[in-house]
Every structure is written in C-alpha cells, then in structure tokens.
Amino acid sequence: MRVVIAPDSFKECLPAEQVASAIARGWRRGAPDDNIVEVPLADGGEGTTVALTEARHGQLHAVTVSGPLGDTVTAHYGLVDDNRLAIVEVAEGSGLHCVPAKARDALNASSYGTGELMLAALAHGPDTLVMGLGGSATTDGGAGILQALGARLLDSQGKDIPPGGAGLAQLASMDLKPALDRLGTTRLVVACDVRNPLLGSDGAAAIFGPQKGANADQVIQLNDNLAHLARLVQAQGMDMASFPGSGAAGGIGGMVAGVLGAELRPGIELVMETVALESHVQRADLVITAEGAMDSQSAYGKTPAGVSALAKQYGVPVIGLAGKLGSELQALHDSGLSAAFSITPAPMDLQEAYAKAADNLEQAAEQLARLVHSLSGGR
C-alpha cells in the first residue's frame, strides 16, 4: 500500500515535519511493508517556510530581525531552485508566538521584522518571493514592512511615525517608491488563508485584534487607523481595502496586494502546488492528513480541506488525525475527508497533550494501519 502523509503543524506544539514523522513511525509499526511518503504542509501560517523549503530540498537561512515589540528574534527564510525562489512568512518575523500572551500589544506591535526578513531574502535576487501571512501579532496594515523596505511614512513634522497600529494615527504623508524599487522585478506571491476585509465588523481589527491583545476600545482605534492608512494609499492611486483577504495578518494582505502588487493565493492551494502534492496523491492508495484541532472551521482554507479536496479528485480515501476533534465535520466530509479520529487516548490537560502529542500520533497511526490492513486483507 502506498500511503501519503500530508499534515499541517500542531500549533504551538509540533511543526508539520515532526507530525508527519510521528505518523510515519506509527504506521510503519503497524504496516512495515507499506510505501510511505511524507509531505509536511502548511496553510500560509506558522511553519510555511520550513514546509515549503524542505519539500523542495532547499536551504533554510537564519537572520536576526526586530520582533513585533522591538526585541530581536531569530527568523528563517528559505531558498530553493538555485535561489530563484525565496520563501518567507509573517509568523517568523512578526509572529504572535514571539510575544508571551500577557505581553501582547496590538497597538504597538510592528511588522518591521517581516520587512527585514524580506530584505534578507531579496538580497539573493530571487525571481519569485512566496510569503505566508498567517500567525501575525500585528495590526499595522503592513506599515512596518514598508518602512523596512525603505518607504517613508511621515508625520506632520516630517518625522517617521512610531511603530504599530497606533502610530498610523500620526501618518501625514508617504513616499512608497523606495519600497517598490527594492522589490524590483521580483514577483511576490502571497499565501492568504482568510478572506476578511481590511475594515469593519469582519475586518482585521475587529476579528483578529482581540487575540493580539486589543480590548474593545483599541479595536475601534485600530480600525480607524487602518482606515486612515487606506485613505492615504488610495490618494496615491492604490487600493488596499476593497478586496477579500485585505484584512489578513492585520492588514498586511491589503498592503502587499494593493501597494506591492502581490498575487494573493489561498494558502493551502499555493503550498500544495509548491510541494507538488498532486503528483504524490494521484499515485496513492491512502492519504493521511492532520492538524491540532479539526472542526467546522477546518473546512475553510485549512490543510485538511485542501488535502481532502485534492485526494477526492483521484478517488483516494483520506483519514484525518487531530489532537482535538470537533463535532461538526460534515463540511470536511463533503470536501473528501473519509473519516477523522482524535489521537488523545484519555482525558488530559493541554500541556500534557502537547507533551505527549508525538507519542499519541504514533499510537493512533499504528492502530489505524493495523485496522486498514485487517479490513483490506493485508493488501
């Protein structure tokens, strides 16, 4: 039997490649003669750089950049195809995981470090730069990225505005040309896993601001400041607010598409295409996918839905594994998921579940392998 293992990461627990390895180890215990192919995935959020770079046998590079609140963090970018393709993600330079929960500050968190990460990747002269948007700590509309790329965002006194979404209130003028020149002829393709607009009740501040530390008053302030930025961008003949996905990553989606001319792509589709998952799935007898929590939201742009839809095209069954399994999975089944199972063998708190995730994945995979082969008569 040929088994393709194509999971996402278990957020804040295991990266996708470790999830895939744990499932593969367990499956081999239960079915040692099977042909197993591991294809770790991501949907544009945390882990996208590693998943894409390793799948394409590229090279990861580390660089020190400014974290969301100014502390330095070590971020990674990937280079593949003799540096013709570069890969970055917002979560590496400006990720929510870079800030302890009690220190999260949506007003002051800046995307500047992601701009520095882009600069490091662009220094290699890639033809294409792929960028993942998920997992940001910021709501600055990508202003920090623009500043890092050389754009001048100035207040009424001609001084650089302060970092973060709060600083946008002081924005009086912009010179965007240096950032556009720095990107040059490099094609920018962005993996975007949400369709939220920049502004309003479904916008960047309202939907994602609270998880980044914003209270109700700060959500209103951030929305107003993003609207101010969008008006100034519009005055320069650019649109960063009118299209689905413009609210992704605290407005970075709107900026990269509207100002830098990026192509927004559904994250999981872009990742699956980049790692050539289809070539593996079309020859598979079974596909296994996984993510930390699998529920009704997983059907909308997440890895299990993307993998299931692809496998459905070739009539290949798909089994899902998750640390936490929701009750509403019909949309996933409709997309092509055959069945889903929780890997948690007994009640346990979150920290214990994190600590035992790899072992639980192995055990669940082994038992599934034994079941599948007993039902198929060993084929």
Rank of each mutant, 00 (worst) to 15 (best):
K212M: 09
G209M: 09
A205C: 06
A166I: 06
T185G: 13
D217T: 11
L171N: 01
L226V: 01
L171G: 01
G203K: 08
Q221L: 15
P163F: 04
Q218Y: 04
L229R: 02
A214P: 03
K177N: 14
V190F: 04
V233Y: 08
K177M: 14
L183N: 00
G237E: 08
L229D: 07
H228W: 10
Q221T: 15
A172Q: 04
A214F: 08
L199F: 07
D217Y: 04
A179V: 12
A169I: 08
A172H: 09
I207N: 06
K159N: 15
G237T: 01
A227L: 02
Q234L: 14
A216E: 15
T185E: 15
G164F: 04
P162I: 06
L180V: 09
F208A: 12
P197K: 01
C192D: 01
V190P: 00
V190C: 07
A169T: 05
I207E: 00
N225V: 02
C192F: 07
I220G: 12
Q221E: 14
A172K: 00
L232E: 05
V233A: 06
A166K: 14
Q234R: 14
G167K: 09
L176V: 06
D224P: 09
S201R: 15
L188K: 00
I220A: 15
L226P: 02
A230Q: 00
R182K: 14
A235V: 04
A214C: 11
K159M: 15
K212L: 13
K159L: 15
L198G: 08
R187Q: 15
V189N: 10
G203Q: 03
A216L: 12
V233E: 05
A179T: 03
V194C: 00
A230D: 03
D193H: 13
R231A: 14
A205Q: 09
L168M: 00
G237V: 01
A204K: 07
R182E: 11
A216C: 08
A235Y: 11
P162Y: 07
Q170S: 12
G167Y: 06
T185S: 14
Q236F: 03
S173K: 08
G200L: 00
P178G: 07
I161M: 10
T186G: 00
L176D: 04
T186N: 03
H228P: 06
L176K: 01
V189F: 11
